[in-house]
C-alpha cells in the first residue's frame, strides 16, 4: 500500500519534470530536467520492485543511477566541445559558445 502511494507520487513528479523538459526555454533547463527525471526514475524502479514483490529490480536501479550521471556529463561535454571522445582541442581554441562549429575550421 505504501509503495503504491510512493509510486503514484513519483509518477506525478515525473510528469511535472517532463513538462519542464518539453517547455524549457534554454538548453540547460532541459539537461537539468533530464537529470532530475533520471533521479525520479531510479526511485520509481526501486518502488515498483517492492510493489511487485521482486526487489531484484534494484540491480537495474543501481545501474540506471550510474548511467544517469555519466549520461548527464556526456551531454554537457558534447554541447561544450562538440565531441564526446578524446578529441584534442588546442588549449587556447576551446569553443565556449554552444553554436555549431566545424572542427576542421577551428583546428
Amino acid at each position: 500500500m505504501m509503495f503504491l502511494v510512493g509510486a503514484i507520487g513519483l509518477f506525478v513528479s515525473m510528469v511535472l519534470v517532463l513538462v519542464r523538459l518539453y517547455s524549457g526555454p534554454t538548453l540547460y533547463d532541459r539537461v537539468l530536467a533530464g537529470s532530475s527525471f533520471g533521479t525520479t526514475t531510479v526511485l520509481f524502479i526501486g518502488v515498483i520492485g517492492f510493489l511487485t514483490g521482486r526487489p531484484d529490480f534494484l540491480d537495474i536501479a543501481l545501474l540506471y543511477a550510474l548511467i544517469n550521471f555519466v549520461g548527464t556529463i556526456a551531454v554537457l561535454k558534447f554541447f561544450r566541445y562538440r565531441a564526446i571522445g578524446d578529441h584534442k582541442w588546442p588549449r587556447n581554441q576551446v569553443p565556449l559558445d554552444p553554436s555549431p562549429q566545424n572542427p576542421e575550421d577551428v583546428a
Binding site: G9, V17, S36
Partner: peptide, 14 residues
C-alpha cells in the same frame, strides 16, 4: 515525506 519532497521539487521546477 519522500513523495512530498519529490512533488515539491517538481512543482518548483515548473
Amino acid at each position: 515525506g519522500g513523495v512530498f519532497f519529490t512533488v515539491v521539487g517538481g512543482i518548483g521546477l515548473l
